[in-house]
Design a protein around this nucleic acid. Structure first.
Lengths: 349, 349
DNA sequence: ATGAAAGCGCTAACAA
DNA sequence: TTGTTAGCGCTTTCAT
C-alpha cells in the first residue's frame, strides 16, 4: 500500500493540507468536527508523517555517526553503548560504521556518513590512520567531529581518552608497593599513543620507587596477542635473575603469560605476580583471577557523545564552539594474580 | 559558517540553480566555462548537497534500524557487525538501539526509529516481550520488520535464528559417542524458545543412544549465570552416582561448573567432561580449554540484513514480499574439556 | 547551453 | 476556524 500523505487525507476529508496538518497536532483553533474527520481519515489511511519532509522543513536531522575500528570488541561495544544511551536521551539516533582498522575504509565510511547527512561524527581512528585530511574536510563543511580512544593531535577537535599513563603507573606501583623490585613489562608496539603511555607509566612508577629500568625486563609485542605474552614470559623466566612480577600491556598478553608461567610450574602470584590491562571479563574467570586496569569504555562513550551534541547545538545557535579534552581515569582492579601471600594473611606468623 | 546551497552558488556565478545542479553532476549539455565557474564557486563555498533534500526528492532514505537487548554482548556485537557490513555494501546505513531487555524501552525505541524514517527494522526481542503489537503497527505502516535470535511466532515476519536443537544434540552426542552414559544438563529458564530447544536437543541425543533421561541429571537455571553453574555442578557431584559429563546451556554456566569441579579436586575431562554453549572467547583461554557450541552471530546478522534489504526492495518495486525463515547451524568446537584421555592416546596401554 | 517552473511532503506566517 | 501562499534544498521536464 502506498504511503499516505497529508494531501490524501485532505482530499478524503475535503479540506486543505494546512488544515490537516493543524488538526493532526491539535492546534488551538480547529473545528472539532473537521478534527474528528481528519483523525479518522488519518487512521484509516495508515497515515504517518514523512520524517524526511519534516526534518527538511525543520532543519533538524538529529542523527550522529560513529566510526570504530571494530564493533566486535568488548571495549568498543561498551563505548558504543554509552554513545547510544546519551544520544537517545537527547532525541538523537546513532548510525554505526566500522573501519576494520583500515585507513581507506575509514575514509570511505566517513564520507558515506556525511552523505547521509549526520549532524556530527564520533571517531576512533584506525591503527593505520596517520593523515586526518578526511576529517578536516568534514570540519570544513561545518560538521563537528569528536575523537575518542585513538586520537590525533593533527585534528583540532574535542577528544576523550583513558588515562593510560596513570593506569599503568598504578598497576606498576601496586606491584612495587608490595616490596617487589624486579618488575617486567610486556609493552605494545612503538607507535600507538596509548601503549606508549602505558610504557611511560611503568617507567615512571619504577623511577618513583628509585628503581632503574632494566632493558632485559622489557619486551615489545608486534601484534599484542596471547602467543606473544606466552613467549615473552618464557623468555623472562629464562633470565639468570627472573622478574618477580609482570605487567602486561593487555589482558590477552597477560593471559598468554599466565599460561607460560603455569606450564613452567610457577605459581601465580607466589612466584610471579601478574597484572593485565583492559579488565576483560575473562580476568575474573581465570585461576587465579587476573588483576587488571579497567578502562571506562561506557563513560568514554557517554562523554564523547555529550561533547558532540553540545558542539552540534553550539553550531546551530551560532555560538563559538569550544573544544574539550577529557582524560578519564583507569581503575586498577586488584585480584589474586598480583597479591602476594603476605597480603592475604593478617601478619607474619 | 552557514551551509552553502545551490542558490548560493547560482547567485555567485550568475546562473540559475538548475544550471548549477546540472554542472555539479556533469550533465552532457553544459558550457565548459560555466561548469568551471560553478565548480570553483562550489569549492570556495564548501558546498555539499543537502542529503535530506536529495533523499526527499528521490524518495530513498537508505537507512535501517536495529534493536538488540544489549549492545555490549559478544553475540550481539557479532550480529551487529554482520548487519552493518551487509547494509553498507548495499549503500544503506544502520541506526542502532538497545532495549536493555525492557519491553517498554523496546516499544519506545522502535517508535523513535520509525519517526526517524528508517526503511526497515531488524529486531531481537527482549526477554520481557510477550506482545508484538508495537511491531505489527510498524508493518501496518508498510515498514518491513525482520526478527532474529529471539523471535515470536505471533508476528508474521522473516526470521533468522541459530539451530539450538541441533547444536545441543551435537554436543550431547559427542559426549555419548565417547562411551559416556551419565550425561547431565544444566538447562536455561523454562520460557525462552532457544534454551528450550537446547534442552530438547539434549533429550533427543540421549534417546538416540537408547538412554532414558534421568531427572536428577537435569538442573534449571533462573538467571543463567556463573554461580548457578557452580552450585549445580556441586549438586551433581554429590549424587550417589554422579554424572560423567555435564552439558551446560551457556558458557558462563560451564565456567562456573568448571570452577566447582576444580575446587572439588576433580579432573576435567578425565573425571568429568564438560561442554558449554555460545563459544565465548574465554573457552579457549581456560585450563582446560572448554568445548562449546558456536553460534554464527555474524552470519545471523548478514542474513537478517539481506532479508530485510530484499523486502525493502520488493516493497519499493510493488512486488509481493516473501517472508523467509532461516535456521543456521551451530558448530560444536571440541576442545580438551570434553575429550576423554582415550582420545589423546593411541590405544589402551 | 540555460532558464523557468513544478513538485517531493511538510510547516507556518499571513489572510480571510 | 480555515484557506492561501511561500519555502525547506534539490531534481527534472519542458521550453527557449
Amino acid at each position: 500500500m502506498k504511503r499516505a500523505t497529508l494531501r490524501d487525507i485532505a482530499q478524503a476529508v475535503g479540506v486543505t493540507v494546512a488544515t490537516v496538518s493543524r488538526a493532526l497536532k491539535d492546534y488551538p483553533d480547529i473545528g472539532s468536527a473537521t478534527k474528528q474527520a481528519v483523525l479518522a481519515a488519518a487512521e484509516r489511511l495508515h497515515y504517518a508523517p514523512h520524517p524526511l519532509a519534516v526534518k527538511l522543513r525543520q532543519k533538524a536531522y538529529k542523527v550522529v555517526g560513529v566510526v570504530v575500528p571494530q564493533i566486535v570488541h568488548p571495549f568498543f561495544s561498551g563505548v558504543i553503548s554509552g554513545i547510544v544511551d546519551v544520544a537517545e536521551a537527547q532525541g538523537y539516533h546513532v548510525i554505526l560504521s566500522q573501519s576494520d582498522e583500515s585507513y581507506e575504509k575509514e575514509i570511505r565510511v566517513t564520507q558515506m556518513l556525511q552523505a547521509t547527512g549526520v549532524d556530527g561524527l564520533l571517531v576512533c581512528l584506525s591503527d593505520q590512520t596517520v593523515d586526518v585530511a578526511h576529517l578536516q574536510a568534514l570540519q570544513a563543511y561545518d560538521l563537528p567531529v569528536v575523537l575518542f580512544d585513538k586520537i590525533s593531535s593533527a585534528l583540532d577537535a574535542s577528544t576523550v581518552v583513558t588515562n593510560d599513563f596513570q593506569g599503568a603507573y598504578d598497576a606498576t606501583a601496586h606491584l612495587l608497593a608490595q616490596g617487589l623490585t624486579r618488575v617486567a613489562h610486556i609493552k605494545g608496539p612503538a607507535h600507538p599513543e596509548n601503549t606508549r603511555q602505558r610504557y611511560a607509566g611503568y617507567l615512571a612508577a619504577l623511577a618513583a620507587y628509585g628503581l632503574p629500568p632494566r632493558p632485559e625486563y622489557v619486551a615489545e609485542c608486534q601484534h599484542v596477542v596471547h602467543a606473544e605474552g606466552f613467549a615473552f614470559a618464557q623468555q623472562f623466566m629464562a633470565l639468570p635473575e627472573p622478574p618477580q612480577a609482570i605487567f602486561a600491556v593487555t589482558d590477552a598478553v597477560a593471559v598468554g603469560a599466565l599460561m607460560a608461567l603455569r606450564q613452567a610450574g610457577l605459581r601465580v602470584p607466589q612466584d610471579v605476580a601478574l597484572v593485565g590491562f583492559s579488565d576483560w571479563a575473562v580476568c575474573e574467570l581465570l585461576d587465579p583471577p587476573i588483576s587488571s586496569v579497567a578502562q571506562p569504555g561506557y563513560e568514554i562513550g557517554r562523554q564523547a557523545s555529550e561533547l558532540l551534541l553540545r558542539e552540534i547545538q553550539q553550531l546551530r545557535d551560532d555560538e563559538p564552539v569550544a573544544h574539550a579534552h577529557r582524560v578519564l581515569d583507569a581503575t586498577l582492579r586488584v585480584r589474586q594474580s598480583s597479591l602476594r601471600a603476605a597480603d592475604f594473611s593478617p601478619a607474619v606468623r
